[in-house]
Design a protein around this nucleic acid. Structure first.
Length: 459
RNA sequence: GUGGAUGUAGCUCAGUAGGUUAGAGUAGCGGAUUGUGGUUCCGUUGGUCGUGGGUUCGAGCCCCAUCUUCCACCCCA
């Protein structure tokens, strides 16, 4: 090997044992999505840059992977821009496609493009990779999978409640302890309005989002740097110090937002959601957190974030309501709400807490030891029969030494091994070894099938 | 995009002030045991020390560049 091959920064290969675990996560979320009546779709890895740009904020545009045009991509480029090395301007000439940054924007594009085919409310799920040109760290990759569930074409807050139920059910099945944090963009808008800084909404939300991490003083400092007057910052203080139950917090914020129509709307939305949530007895705590902002531009109502309680890692699920994402693509008045499960971070959490089922690594149930040509021919029809009854079976492909074949079974964690040599062929009874216990017995084919089927069911 | 740390066998890591042929554990392979794995014992393969330059009589170690991973900022799943 002259030079070791490698893969791009922030991307990963997944070996068999990792894939078994990853599939466990994918299968779990998908089965919950289906349980709630969501339908699958897929969209291309790349989208036109025009559908991607401007949807994720300034930062998001920078993190988009852009694809160089095919052929002579410099042909259309402006000569003077090239001379000036104006990368930003040149980009629009040499790249018209990009890798998707999330699944929500492509979904909105999908809905607009297929508006005649989809029936509203449209409930869909989508499990696909997304790409971000971010600097990688632990729990942060440049290619990662999102598992999105969205319902579009319905204003009902029932959808918000349903998404929280889904979160509860998914993490109950995955056995991860989590907490849901909720807020509402309308409340945040109301706050900006009340303190007389409606145009500073983005700066305000970005700053107070860091309250948890940086503390009140740094937040205030950042607000000041962004040009907020002292009076406005002072007005903000009581909001940052809310305490009590969700309803108590809402009660307090209501009086602060008394003059803001949009703010009060947000409060009443949250009240409705919490009221409907109350009798459902979810095991996941749902907490109103006014410092939760979320950077994505398109959210307009409820916003969610899910944090793992037993491991420090960024949020493992996030989402919210977007009232007019489809409007950008020419279909106004269609509101949607959705959340996204971050499969890779969920994986990291489960790995760290050792939560994967331990038999998940097993695929083959039964290995036939290969003794030679005669024995192979004898075993082949038996193996076919076993596979037809659903038992995952394989035969070692060559008559290697016993030790090697047994080691193979052991390393692959195959629970049963069948030995068929001279003796077994003449008696018709197969020697079946239980690899875990080290015991073995002679059984007929029918008995063999029953034994293993039962063993699988017991697991 | 900015700043900091890291990189030695497949994996986990030693490597003394720059000085012969770079070590260990583990995994792999072979044997003890040719119809019995996981335990034990013996033997053995494997490294252009991330990559490319430079300083030096001499570089795993010093300098520069570059890449990876990790950490912080930013932002996020």
């Amino acid at each position: 090997m002259a030079q070791k091959p490698s893969i791009p920064k922030g991307t990963r290969d997944f070996g068999p044992s990792e894939m078994v675990k990853r599939n466990f996560i994918f299968d779990t979320v998908k089965s919950v999505f289906k349980l709630y009546g969501y339908q699958p779709i897929e969209t291309p890895a790349m989208e036109n840059l025009s559908t991607l740009m401007g949807k994720y904020g300034e930062e998001g545009d920078k993190l988009l992977f852009k694809i160089l045009n095919s052929g002579d991509f410099l042909k259309g480029a402006d000569e003077s821009q090239l001379q000036q090395k104006n990368s930003q301007k040149i980009t629009s000439y040499i790249s018209e496609k990009g890798l998707r940054y999330d699944l929500t924007v492509p979904f909105a594009r999908f809905v607009v493009q297929h508006r005649e085919e989809v029936q509203f409310p449209f409930k869909r799920y989508q499990v696909q990779p997304v790409w971000r040109a971010d600097n990688p760290q632990k729990g942060r990759y440049r290619e990662f999978y999102q598992c999105d569930v969205d319902v579009i074409g319905s204003d009902s807050l029932l959808n918000e409640v349903e998404l929280i139920q889904i979160v509860d059910e998914v993490y109950r099945r995955l056995n991860i302890r989590v907490a849901v944090k909720m807020n509402n963009r309308k409340i945040l808008s109301g706050i900006a309005e009340v303190i007389g800084q409606p145009d500073k909404i983005v700066d305000i939300t970005v700053a107070i989002d860091k309250l948890d991490k940086n503390g009140i003083e740094k937040v205030n400092l950042e607000l000041e740097e962004k040009g907020l007057p002292k009076s406005a910052i002072n007005q903000l203080q009581p909001i940052l110090h809310l305490s009590g139950t969700n309803f108590e917090k809402l009660q307090q914020i209501k009086s602060v937002l008394a003059t803001s129509e949009i703010g009060l709307k947000g409060v009443s939305e949250m009240e409705t959601v919490f009221n409907w949530l109350a009798p459902l007895q979810l095991q996941t705590p749902v907490e109103l957190d006014l410092t939760l902002a979320r950077g994505l531009n398109y959210y307009t109502g409820a916003i969610f974030e899910v944090k793992a309680l037993d491991m420090q890692i960024g949020s493992i699920t996030g989402g919210g309501r977007y009232d007019d994402l489809t409007g950008i693509f020419g279909l106004p008045g269609v509101s949607g709400v959705g959340i996204s499960f971050g499969a890779d971070r969920i994986y990291d959490v489960m790995e760290h807490l050792d939560l994967f089922p331990k038999n998940a690594a097993t695929t083959t149930q039964l290995l036939f030891i290969n003794f030679g040509e005669k024995e192979q021919s004898w075993c082949l029809p038996v193996i076919q029969q076993l596979r037809r009854t659903g038992i995952s079976t394989e035969m070692y492909p060559e008559p290697a030494k016993m030790k090697k074949q047994m080691s193979y079974a052991n390393d692959r964690k195959i629970p049963y091994v069948a030995l068929v040599g001279e003796e077994e062929m003449s008696s018709g009874l197969i020697t079946l070894k239980n690899m875990e216990l080290g015991t073995q017995e002679k059984v007929g084919v029918a008995e063999l099938m029953e034994l293993i089927s039962n063993a699988i069911i017991r697991k």
